[in-house]
Amino acid sequence: MALAAGTAHAARPMITDDARIVDAKACQLESWVKDDRDSTEYWALPACNFTGNLELTLGGARTREGGHTRTTDVQVQGKTLFKLLEPNGWGLGLAAGTVQRPQVSSGGRDWYAYVPASFSFRDDAVVIHANVGWLREGETRRDRLTWGLGTEARLGTRTWLITETFGQDQGRSYAQVGVRHWLLPDRVQIDTTYGNRFGNNGEERWFSLGLRLLSPPFLP
C-alpha cells in the first residue's frame, strides 16, 4: 500500500484490504520481497488478535537501493470488524494506523484510515473487496483520498487468482495481478504478483514473492 495509500496491507498478496481479521487469540506473519527497477523491499508484518475483534499489526520494511540496505518503513495498525464476512454475504470493517519513514529527516510519519468492505459470491468462490480511505502525508502535509477495488477468484481447492486496481484522488492508478496458493490450508500460504502503474510504459512495474504463516489460537 506504500504505492498508493500509505502502507495498509491486506491478506497477501492483495493491497486492497478485505473485511477479515486474524482468528481470535491467534497470530499471523506476512512476509514478502518486492522488486522493482531501482530497489528491493523486504517486508515482515506480524499481527495478532488478542481480544477477538481487534487485529494489531507491528512491522515494517528494509529496502536495498544503490548498494545500501536500510529500514524504510515502520508500521503500526489496528483493524476491527463491524460485520463479519460470511459465504454469500458481506462484511465491513475499519482500519487505522501510522507509518514512520526513518530516512525522511522531517515529517516522515504518515497517518491513514480506511473502510474495507467485502462481498462473497458462489459460496466464496468469488470475493470482491472495496476500500475507501484517508491518508495524511507527513512529508508534504497533504490529505489524500485513497481507494482500492480487488477480486479473489478460486482456481482450485487451494489456489486463487488475485486482480486489483488502487490509487489516490490524484495521479494515475495502479493495477496488480497474482496467484495465492495454500501449501497447508489456513496455515501456510505462498504467493506471487506482478504490478504496474497505468500509462507508465513499465517504468514503475514490480514483482513480489510472499510467504504467509497463520497460527491456531494460542493466546491467553
Rank of each mutant, 00 (worst) to 15 (best):
L84M: 07
D110E: 10
Y114N: 12
D123N: 15
F82T: 01
V115G: 03
Q77I: 07
F119G: 11
V76H: 03
V104N: 07
V104H: 02
A117E: 05
L92R: 03
G93A: 04
D110L: 09
S120D: 10
G91N: 03
Q100R: 15
G78Q: 01
W111V: 10
L94M: 12
W111G: 11
G108M: 08
P87N: 08
P87F: 07
K79V: 00
E86H: 08
P116A: 10
G91T: 04
Q75F: 04
R109I: 12
P116Q: 05
W111L: 15
F82I: 01
D123Q: 14
L92D: 05
W90D: 10
G107W: 03
D123W: 01
T98G: 15
R109H: 01
V76N: 01
G108S: 12
V99T: 15
A117C: 03
Y112C: 00
G89M: 00
V99D: 14
Q75P: 00
P116E: 10
G97R: 09
W90E: 02
R101D: 04
A113S: 14
D123K: 13
V76S: 12
R101A: 09
L85E: 12
L92H: 06
E86A: 10
S105M: 09
K83L: 11
L81D: 12
G78P: 02
L84K: 15
V76K: 01
G108N: 08
G97W: 05
T98S: 15
G78H: 04
E86I: 04
T98Y: 10
V99N: 15
L81Q: 04
G108V: 06
G91K: 08
G108K: 08
W111Q: 13
P102M: 01
V115H: 03
K83Y: 05
A113P: 02
V76P: 00
Y112K: 01
Q75V: 15
Y114T: 00
F119W: 13
V104W: 04
T98N: 07
E86Y: 01
G93H: 03
P116H: 09
L81G: 00
S106A: 14
P116M: 07
Q77N: 07
V115T: 12
P87T: 02
V115C: 01
Q103R: 11
S106I: 06
W90K: 03
L84D: 13
P87Q: 04
V115K: 01
P87S: 12
G97K: 11
G108H: 07
W111F: 15
A96G: 15
E86P: 00
K79A: 06
Y114M: 13
G108C: 09
R122E: 13
R122P: 00
G97S: 02
A96Q: 07
K83D: 09
S105R: 13
E86K: 13
N88S: 13
S105Y: 09
W111T: 11
G89N: 10
P102Y: 04
D110C: 11
G107R: 04
G78Y: 06
V104R: 10
R122H: 13
L92I: 11
A96I: 05
T80P: 06
S118I: 06
F82K: 03
L94D: 10
F82M: 06
G91S: 02
L94Y: 09
S118T: 08
T98Q: 14
W111R: 11
A117V: 11
Y114G: 06
G107Q: 08
R109S: 14
D123G: 05
A113G: 15
S120C: 07
V99M: 14
K79H: 00
F121Y: 15
N88F: 11
A96Y: 13
K79D: 02
G108D: 08
N88Y: 06
